[in-house]
Amino acid sequence: MKYLHALALLVALFATAPSLAVEPDEMLANPVLEARARAISKELRCMVCQNESIDESQAPLAHDLRLLVRRRLVAGDSNQQVIDFLVSRYGEFILLKPPLSWNTVALWGAPPALLLVGAIMIVVVERRRKAIQRASGMPQLSAAEQARLAEILNGETTT
């Protein structure tokens, strides 16, 4: 079953595919509307493809969705209305940029959280390391040793 699915996908992708993503006959005559359509298309996922937007995809489904987007724009929808309409029809799966919700808090929060945790960890480890080194007293020199060291160093630099 899975095999069939993948095969269908492959066929959809390459065999019956029209050769181009956005086709000339799909485009709107009004350049402002067309530019908006392109911008919206870049945010929407072609659902039978791997992470491709409908603007890039050659699949027939993407073609249909591009036409749908343009029809809504011509009918006078705002960008947000078009997107809302498509989400109501296909679910959030169609959005390439997942909206912030309970489901995606971990997703959006992860990068800054990781950066913060990483930074804190570095500071903590560094502090502990210094504390251990100080406590073990190994690298610490006594006052006499310090003086002797300074003597040696001075001796070397003057000669």
């Binding site: 945010e43 996922r45 992470n51 959030e92 959005l95 390439l96 940029k97 489901n103 971990a106 997703l107």
Partner: peptide
């Protein structure tokens, strides 16, 4: 890593399908 695996994990845990694409 999270962006790549998150949709898989979410689908396995809650059954909800989301896309994590270039904008993310």
């Amino acid at each position: 890593l999270i962006g790549t695996l998150y949709p898989l994990a979410l689908a396995a845990l809650t059954g909800e399908k989301i896309s994590v694409g270039p904008p993310f």
